[in-house]
Amino acid sequence: MKRLGVGGWIILALAAVYFIGPLVLTVIFSLWEGRGHYGISAYVTLLQRPNIVRSLVVSVELALATCAALVVLLVPAMVFMNLYAPRLRPLFEFIAALPFVVPAIALVAGLSALFSGPEWLIGTPFYLVIPYFFLALPYAYRAIDVGIRAIDLTTLTEAGQSLGADMGQIIRLIVLPNLRTALVGSTLLTLAVVMGEFTFANVLLFHTFAVLINEVGQNAPTEAAALSTLSFLITWLAMAGVLLAGRRGGVQLSGAR
């Protein structure tokens, strides 16, 4: 392998400064207690806020519910499309790309006009699963599509059928386990989208994690920095966990020679 020259090292250092600099400064700022004092008081106040845990829990629950909805609805739909109606693929691609084209605020307006549903639905934050489903759709669709293309879905399905399995057993025992890596990826992306989503939650007046970050940022800057640091750590831990799980699956799934 070619060794990195002086120029290479300089570029690498500049990139490191560019990426790590703001992070370090955020951490330092979050530790600032005014007049040259440094300590963890911002973190203490932050964690003492009454709604922080609740909003975090709400966001995580929303993310998981969205993931579940995507797996339950999207995977069978895509499996059936690939097996029995491959001609519908362009339609699927189009629908999956729509959320990119339509601005979030237009979605909110449309959504609140459309869903004047029962109180038990629109009164809880789980109402947000509906818009989040569509927000995460493009990412989840891509990830699952890549996974499905990587296996010979038709042959595996037919093998399952000839062995007497019904479609439910085939999806549960054959398709889902072989889409593990793809599902990990789609879960990761969905988590990221839902955890960071602000517009819907704010306009529809739900107190999610992203809304809280925004609120804190407006009146307590050091706490906001502390919150950013924390959410950065949480996100990284989550990603590392998901990636590790995916890698372990990946060994078994590297496919037939």
Partner: peptide, 20 residues
């Protein structure tokens, strides 16, 4: 009858073992 009810064993041209 659907394939799943015919009790016929099938071996395919392409490798068809369940990778998982």
């Amino acid at each position: 009858l659907p394939a799943s009810a015919r009790r016929m064993g099938m071996v395919f041209q392409s490798y068809s073992l369940f990778p998982n």
